[in-house]
């Protein structure tokens, strides 16, 4: 009998945490109890950045987190964070499950990680306290908090906003006090971090599509027997398959909950979205200077197939 520790940084009721629970049940059943999984969701073993360090050095077997925490380990991940890249979640997973995903797996393996699969964090949407957003002119001068990621920052600069890099722990009070005008996140994160309490306007900008991912320590993974390795892979695949469907189902429910909690929802028209695309068309060019342009083209081709 062997114990595997799996860590996560999402709240208890998030589908990413449920992924961990399904993974545990499946692994233990498939290996007839040879492998026992201990779960540490909800930042019990520290934040996501620390969990990544723990997996890399093998203190923890695997994590379920967002790929944002791997973009500085495997910079190629930035290619799937380009603005307005995916028109649907099906397109997003077509890329991750196809040849591009294979390439990501190789890059992860080179850095000592086994990629166990991807799920949905969701389309990211802008909230703010100044005005409803319908076209890129509405972004003008808004102080929007973004994750520290160059593609993200470039995108909002291109839209005319004033992107601010700020620690997420400060964001709630910063928006309450007016230090920030707004921020962007998937509906479920806006709700679970309660940002709706301090934000008025919500639009379905869907400017980035964000993935959750599961990754294991390569050395620990390879120490498992072949059947155990297969059990781990299959269990996570099953968990992620469930998560993708459930997250898609839940997404609209989360949006409605935000509206019910008092946010004003302004949908983006097709013209508005076309306007956003035009404004941010240059972002891809600056990314091509940092990572292999062939990979970016492959991602774009696959995404728009």
């Amino acid at each position: 009998q062997q114990r595997l520790r799996v860590a996560g940084n999402f709240p208890a009721d998030h589908t990413a945490t449920k992924v961990m629970e399904i993974f545990k049940k499946e692994v233990e059943a498939r290996t007839k109890g040879e492998l026992q999984v201990d779960l540490f969701p909800n930042m019990q073993l520290g934040g996501a950045a620390e969990n990544v360090d723990q997996v890399r050095s093998g203190t923890v077997f695997a994590i379920v987190t967002s790929i944002a925490y791997f973009t500085r380990i495997v910079p190629e991940y930035e290619a799937v964070s380009l603005p307005f890249l995916f028109s649907s979640r099906e397109a997003a997973f077509r890329v991750m499950d196809g040849p591009v995903g294979k390439l990501f797996d190789e890059r992860m393996a080179q850095k000592g990680f086994i990629s166990l699969g991807y799920g949905e964090l969701g389309f990211r949407h802008v909230t703010n306290n100044v005005r409803p957003i319908t076209s890129s002119a509405d972004f003008k001068g808004l102080k929007i908090r973004l994750q520290p990621n160059e593609v993200h920052l470039d995108t909002f600069r291109a839209l005319g906003a004033n992107p601010v890099a700020m620690d997420v722990k400060e964001v709630y009070s910063a928006m309450q006090q007016g230090v920030l005008d707004g921020h962007e996140n998937p509906y479920n994160i806006i709700a679970s971090r309660r940002f709706n309490e301090v934000q008025k306007h919500l639009s379905d900008t869907g400017h980035f599509y964000d993935f959750i991912n599961a990754a294991a320590n390569k050395r620990l993974f390879e120490r498992l027997s072949k059947p155990q390795q297969e059990a781990v892979m299959a269990s996570m695949k099953e968990a992620m398959t469930w998560q993708r469907a459930e997250a898609a189902r839940e997404d609209e429910r989360w949006r409605q909950q935000l509206v019910k909690a008092g946010m004003t929802f302004t949908p983006i028209t097709p013209q508005g979205r076309a306007d956003f695309r035009r404004s941010t068309a240059g972002v891809v060019e600056s990314l091509k200077k940092r990572i292999d342009p062939k990979l970016i083209e492959a991602v774009v081709t696959e995404a728009t197939k």
């Binding site: 102080k143 004033n162 890099a165 700020m166 230090v179």
Partner: peptide, 17 residues
Amino acid sequence: WRYVLSSSIDSADEVSR
């Protein structure tokens, strides 16, 4: 930068930490 120049230093958070 943020209040007067309406801009932001991208790396301010991580560098100060």
